[in-house]
Amino acid sequence: MGSDKRSAGFYVLAVFFGLFVLFLYGPLSAVFILSFQGPQGGLTFPLNGVSTRWFQNLFETQAVGNFGASFTRSLILGLMVMAATVLVSLLAGLAFRHRFLCASPLFYLTVASLVVPSIIVSLGIGVLFQQIGVQPNWFSSGFGAHLTWTLPFGVLIMFAVFNRFSPAYEEAARDLGASPWQTFAHVVLPMIAPSLIGVGLFGFSLSYDEFARTLLTSGSSNTLPLEIYGMTTNVTTPVLYALGTVTTAFSFLVILATLGTILLVNRRRARA
C-alpha cells in the first residue's frame, strides 16, 4: 500500500473487481446486443441477422401496449419527484442544522421511510385513497409513494453535506453585512449546488425506475416500469430487449448529463 511496488493482493483484488464489473455490465450488454436481433430471431443468442425491426415495433402502439404514453408519464413523474425531493430535502437539511423539538422523531420517521417494505407503502396508500374516496392516480398517490422512497435518500445526503459544512463561511458573510437570505443565496447555495444536483439525479432515477411503490398507487394508467413488468409475462419477442435498451440508454443519458453539469459547476467555481 505504502510502497510503490504492487503487492500480489492488489492483482487478486483487481481481477476480483474486474469480474464484479463484468457481472454488473455483462447481462446488460447481452440485452443491448440482442435488441438488434434479426426479424426471425428469438430471445436468446445467436443473432439471427441484424435489424432495427424491434425498435420500430416498439413505436407501433398496438404491438406492445402503449410505450409512448407510459414513458411520458414516467418522465413527468420523475421530474415532479426530482423537484420535490431537492426542495424538501434542502429545507429539511437546513432545519436539522438547528435544534428543534421532534427533530429526533422526524429523523427516525425518515429512516423508517427507507426501511418499510415498498409493497407495504403501496398497499397502505392504495387503501388510504380508497377509504377517503379519492381516485388513485400516478400524479397524486403515485407521486407521494415515490417521495417516500426518494426523500430519505435526499434528506440523508443533505444531512451528510451539512455535517461537513463549516459555519465559518456564513459567519464571515454575516460579518460583512449580508442578510440571512443573501448568505444563503450567495454563500451556502453555491457551495452545496453539486450535492443538490446529485440529490436531483437520485430523485429522478429512483422514481423513473420505481415499480413496487407504483403498483397500487398509479390508478388506471401505467408508468413505464409497470408496462415493462407486464411485458415480461406476455411478450416473447426481442421487442422486450429493445425497450430495455431504449430505457437504459435514456437512464445513461440522464446520468451523463448530470455528471457533466456537476463538473461544469465545479469548474466554474474553481475559476471564480
Binding site: 426542495l87 429545507l91 422526524l106 420517521l109 407503502v121
Partner: peptide, 27 residues
C-alpha cells in the same frame, strides 16, 4: 425557521407513510 423548514418533510411522510401504515394496522 427550523419548524417551517421541517414542515414539508413532516407533512409528506406523515400523509404518505405514517397514516397509511396506521390505517393498515386498523384495516
Amino acid at each position: 425557521t427550523p419548524y417551517l423548514q421541517a414542515t414539508p418533510l413532516l407533512l409528506i411522510l406523515g400523509f404518505f407513510l405514517a397514516i397509511p401504515i396506521l390505517l393498515l394496522l386498523v384495516v
